[in-house]
Design a protein around this nucleic acid. Structure first.
Lengths: 334, 334
DNA sequence: TTTATTTACGTAAACGTTTACGAATAAGAG
DNA sequence: CTCTTATTCGTAAACGTTTACGTAAATAAA
């Protein structure tokens, strides 16, 4: 059928394909009059350039990949929102991949991107990691930016938050609120992100001569049942009077657990957590949060990626840290 | 540099490019031995086929587009999660586009997809609509499925929920809880989705001989300040004793408004809303919700799209409706 | 006027696949 | 032994762009 392409335009206008192509790209080699004619005909025939032919020829895809553990997550959804907006402004397309925290899935995504399908990658790595070689392989070939999560043994451009300081300060907040037995719900333990948060928690307690109670809740917290019961067991057995949660997915189970255990938040247990819940204020009680600037992280990561495209970015190994904000609410009140 | 492609593989193996290509695609025309040799060499050289060359030649992109108003939204994030999973299982890629409720942006996305960039489109249309011609244009050329939202004057394959029934039943629930002046926070009024919800609300009141109080809150509810004050004004001026909210983004402002107006939920005002908040139960008070099966909608829409690809779907104009579930909680207790 | 430069366009190759067509060899049928 | 068929591979064209190179005409420089 009459698919309209450059050749069709050319024959319609009695021009060569080359001229049409140049006219469409507003080349200086083409007269204003010809450009106008070409544009008009392109519009008339509703010409849409074939992106694959372009990409094949130019070795550019005008597409970026975003690899995240999950889309249905307050933090990542916000980051993706920002990324898509930046990409749109730069007339680029956005491919989404979910790893579900699996290193193998991540690996297969990453290596498939070596085909040239995308011009750049934004990644927040999975916490279950298999073999990290693919990070190096990909970043050697295409610009790549880590956001939020990263591995300390992998070099690269990284946009993170002040994980250590925010965990330290959140813990300190609970100490100042009078907590003596502060537990920590760990996650992301294989990632720099998780390690720093844990260290911030540990150091804050050490600096205040308090014992630490870190607990690693294994398993995917999507599965609420098992996750809730583990959190409940932790609270029941260790009887903390305060909890710092390293992820939102471990904090909300505390609410359910406390209900079941007849514990009052904040009287019996004070709680603060990393979270991007938009309405933490509406919870019962309002939840104290360490709020990461998710949108800004996505925005910054994408912006830097585009700078890398245009060679306006030279440092291949840098970590940029954005500040989280601690919002103290009822759940940690003394 | 030594980019490895089919020609490279071919020369390395003393074969023709055609043979290598066929071997990689497991063609019956190639001997088992040759296939093995090719596979081995491909693995050894870490060959990744160029997707643009493939797509150009085959006129297939192995990519689908998802067009949504926003990614950072509980409903759409869940739907996208499901869609990505289905696409992954089918070895397809997922492009994400946000319209921010703008018909013009939507139009430009849609028409750009006419280039063949994607094999299919999943769309939840923007509520501000300019000129709907592009829906027809696109669906004539590539398989397309509407999900959650749709226009009644556009034909197509649509996956929705029981908007009328759920709104009717939610309203009925408030009636039975003793409400006499039930307000309605309207949204999506240009879409079938919004119209049906409104009608369900209106009919439920009519059937119970009660007056209706629909209120259309204009403007993007992302902007919480203006949205909140409008909701607050509505409650203060019209003094409803019950509210059915057509979207989550209008229900949560009710919590803030009631705080400011010193109204108690549910004593002074009972509230029920469409929502995909994972933890409505933890709000103060727990929020009664009309819960749409977001994941299932995404899953169903994507599954049908792939059936359309393989011609296992013939009905070009059908609406499949999934059931929402009404979860009654404290916010609407009598 | 001659030469050099600019302007505006065309020709053809290239990007990396896939595939229609053809051909050579081997195997089977008669 | 000849003829048919199956098996296995190669040649070359095609997908729709972009771009290096060439060229003719027009203009400027000498």
């Amino acid at each position: 059928m009459g698919e309209v392409n450059i050749k069709k335009l050319a024959s319609e206008l009695n021009l060569s394909a080359a001229t049409v192509s140049r006219a469409l790209r507003d080349s200086h080699e083409i007269s204003a009059e010809t450009k106008a004619r070409v544009m008009e005909m392109a519009k008339k025939l509703a010409y849409e350039p074939n992106p694959f032919a372009s990409s094949l020829r130019q070795q550019k895809s005008k597409t970026i990949a975003v690899i995240v553990p999950e889309v249905a997550n307050n933090f990542f959804a916000l980051a993706i929102k920002a990324i898509e907006e930046v990409a749109r402004a730069k007339d680029h397309h956005v491919l989404i991949y979910q790893t579900h925290e699996s290193g193998e899935i991540e690996s297969s995504f990453m290596t498939s991107l070596l085909s040239g399908r995308v011009d750049g990658v934004l990644i927040s790595p999975a916490c279950h990691v298999a073999n990290k070689k693919y990070f190096q392989k990909v970043s050697e070939k295409i610009p790549m930016v880590f956001f939020d999560r990263d591995h300390d043994d992998i070099e690269g451009v990284k946009i993170t938050t002040d994980d250590y300081e925010s965990a330290y300060n959140a813990t300190l907040h609970l100490v100042e609120a009078g907590c003596k037995k502060i537990g920590y719900l760990a996650a992301l333990e294989t990632l720099t992100t998780g390690k720093k948060r844990l260290q911030g928690y540990l150091d804050a307690l050490k600096d205040n001569n308090l014992e630490s109670m870190p607990a690693l809740i294994e398993g995917n917290c999507e599965n609420n049942e098992s996750c809730r019961s583990k959190v409940k067991d932790f609270i029941a057995e260790r009887k903390p009077d305060g909890i710092v949660s390293s992820i939102e997915e471990l904090a909300l189970p505390c609410y359910y657990a406390c209900k079941e255990l007849n514990l009052n938040i904040p009287k019996d247990l004070k709680l603060i957590t990393y979270s991007n819940l938009a309405h933490a204020e509406l919870l019962n009680p309002p939840l104290s949060t360490i709020n990461q600037p998710a949108f800004e992280i996505g925005n910054e990561a994408a912006t830097i990626l585009f700078k890398m495209f245009s060679k306006r970015w030279y440092d291949p190994n840098i970590t940029i840290s954005l500040k989280s904000s601690i919002i103290k609410r009822e759940s940690s009140r003394s």
